[in-house]
Simulated assay, not measured.
Amino acid sequence: MVRSGYLPSLDGLRAASILLVLVGHAEISSRSPGGFGVTVFFFLSGYLITTLLLREQHRYGTISMRQFYLRRVLRLMPPLVLTLAAAMLLSAVGLARGQLDLGTLTSQLLFYFNYYAQVAAPQLVEGLGILWSLSVEEHFYLIWPAIFVALMRNTIRIRHLVLLLAIILAWRCYRVIGWGDPEWKIYFSTDTRFDSLLYGCILAIVQQRYPDFDRRFRSGPAMYAILALSLGVLLFTLAYRDEMFRSTLRYSLQGIALMPIFHFAVNCPDALVFRPLNWAIIRRIGVWSYTMYLSHYVIMYALAANDVAAFGSLSILLWSLLLSCLWSALVFELAEKPLMPWRRRLSVHPGSMPQGAAAD
């Protein structure tokens, strides 16, 4: 599926993911699936980035590594730098607890915090520990464009990606059984979470190469039956609390179950179950979701530190939702929106002509 234009429901799925994360971090329930919200973000990131790379490949016959990484910098760094600065300011005036040391700040800005935090004792403004997930994503994108190019040249095939998924699962099992790594180390490490993005990448490639593979399943009953099965698998992965399972097979099953959900959400946005994802307010939260993710936990800890709201209460969820939306809207207007023309320019190959176009 390579076509220009807005991908229906993806901003809605972003919004659903950030809301899951907020509910989990608010600690309203011990079973709140905040970690699953991060997994959905990973899957969505792999799916969206690969879809954009497929469009670039289709239009120009190649992808520009340089422009890919420049787009990543323009997308990630302004909200990250502003949110880190705001967190340090809150700490400096006594509204937030903790402080950032140079080593921790460097690891967060250069995206190796997930491993730095495992070997050092990072000093943090409370709430900034969630930046580990940015490290996982950026490590993945150091490798994925090269794999993508190999796929486009048929040097490797989809079956090799499926084999890689199996290898990563086996590696997780080895780290748990052979090394005795605890669940949190598996959760934070790039080498054990690589496949959470890869499942999304594979879905995008399958959609592009086999656009009609699901034609018989797009009728209401068939689609809803597949969605019900996927939801059942996801609920099982959240309810089953065995630590070995949670550190190993859980991520694989979640990746598989997310595939049909994303597929139908994008291709059948008018289906009753997906319509809420396209409500204007939900899409707007999706647009803000990255900055909301960066800021919401700092806001929660600041609210708790100043006795405005307590963890485990509905009020901390509502206040953090409101304040993170306000902060994200401000960052979007001041930093992200002005850079959009630059990012669009970086999607066009200088001096190149789209495939199939005639010279003027």
Rank of each mutant, 00 (worst) to 15 (best):
A222M: 13
I316E: 03
F262G: 08
A302I: 02
Y293G: 06
G312R: 07
V176N: 03
L52M: 08
I168L: 12
F36A: 11
Y116L: 00
A228F: 14
N267T: 04
A96M: 08
A329H: 12
V162Y: 13
L53T: 06
E137Q: 09
I226E: 01
L80Y: 08
I256T: 05
G286F: 00
D270Y: 15
Y240E: 11
Y240N: 04
R343C: 00
D360R: 15
L89W: 12
G286N: 02
L131P: 02
H296S: 09
T50S: 07
I28Y: 03
F236C: 07
A265W: 04
L44V: 10
A358M: 09
I143S: 07
P341Y: 14
L326F: 09
H296N: 13
Q118E: 09
F274E: 06
L198A: 14
Y290N: 08
E138R: 09
E27K: 15
G24K: 04
I18K: 00
L53S: 02
A92V: 01
G98W: 10
P78G: 08
W279Q: 11
L76E: 06
N114R: 11
S64P: 00
R3P: 02
F332M: 11
T50P: 03
L105M: 06
A329M: 08
E336S: 09
A26T: 02
F68V: 03
L109C: 07
S295T: 10
G5E: 11
P221F: 09
A310G: 03
S17D: 03
P79A: 13
A120T: 06
W327T: 04
F194L: 13
L253D: 13
V23P: 02
F113R: 06
R250C: 15
F36P: 02
H263P: 04
S91T: 11
D195T: 10
H25Y: 15
S289F: 05
C325P: 02
G61M: 10
Q208L: 01
T106W: 14
S313I: 03
G37D: 09
I316C: 06
C173A: 12
V73H: 12
L109W: 14
F274V: 04
G24Q: 11
A92Q: 08
S352V: 09
M1V: 12
I256P: 04
I282S: 02
V176P: 03
L229H: 02
P122W: 01
L134N: 05
G103D: 00
Y199F: 15
L314Y: 14
G98N: 01
I281T: 13
S313H: 03
F43D: 00
L229M: 10
L318G: 15
L303E: 07
A87E: 02
F311S: 14
Y290Q: 10
R72A: 05
L323A: 07
L322Y: 07
V273H: 12
D307L: 06
Y116D: 07
S295F: 13
R71L: 07
L52Y: 00
L197D: 05
L89P: 00
I186M: 14
I143E: 14
F42P: 00
Y251S: 15
L330E: 08
G61T: 07
